[in-house]
Simulated assay, not measured.
Amino acid sequence: MITPDPATPEGAAVIDLHDKMQGLEDLTGEWPGADTVDIIGRWFEGFDFTRPPAPACWVTGSAWVLRCQDRHEDTVTLWADEATALASLARDVRSNWDNVSDADGIPDFPPADDRTAVDLYYGPRDSREEEDYWLYAQDITTLAPPAPHAYRFPAAEVCAWINSAARFHPASCPDSASLPCIEVGGVLVFAYLDPDAKAVQISVDLDTTAGQLRRSDATVPLLIQIGNSTVFSAPAGPVPASTQPRRLRRWLRHIPWMRW
Rank of each mutant, 00 (worst) to 15 (best):
P9D: 08
Q225H: 08
L143N: 01
D16M: 06
T28D: 09
D70S: 03
D205K: 09
G227C: 08
I106D: 02
P52D: 10
T8E: 07
I106H: 00
D38N: 06
D26Q: 10
E30H: 09
C57K: 15
T50K: 09
N96P: 01
F153P: 05
A137W: 04
L248K: 04
W251L: 12
L78Q: 12
P110W: 04
L252E: 14
I255P: 01
D217K: 05
C57T: 14
R246H: 08
I162D: 04
C68H: 11
G211F: 00
Y136G: 11
S229D: 11
H254W: 01
R71N: 04
I40H: 03
S229F: 00
G29Q: 09
Y133W: 08
V239R: 08
Y122L: 07
D175F: 03
P52M: 08
A13E: 05
A85F: 03
A155D: 14
L213A: 02
Q22H: 13
C181S: 06
C68Q: 13
E129C: 11
W134I: 07
V239D: 06
Y151C: 05
P52Q: 10
D26P: 00
A241W: 01
G227K: 10
P240R: 07
L206S: 07
R247I: 13
P195M: 11
W251A: 15
D5K: 03
R250S: 15
A191K: 13
W64E: 14
P145V: 08
P240G: 01
G186Q: 05
Y122I: 10
R246G: 13
W43R: 05
S101C: 09
I162P: 01
F232C: 07
V239S: 12
S178A: 12
I162N: 06
Y192W: 10
D102G: 11
V204Y: 04
I140H: 05
S88M: 06
S216Q: 10
S233M: 12
P9R: 12
A155F: 01
R115H: 05
T141I: 04
S233Q: 13
W58P: 00
W251C: 15
G185P: 03
A234S: 14
K20I: 06
D132F: 00
W161Q: 15
R253G: 14
A80E: 15
D48K: 06
T219V: 00
E157N: 12
E130Y: 01
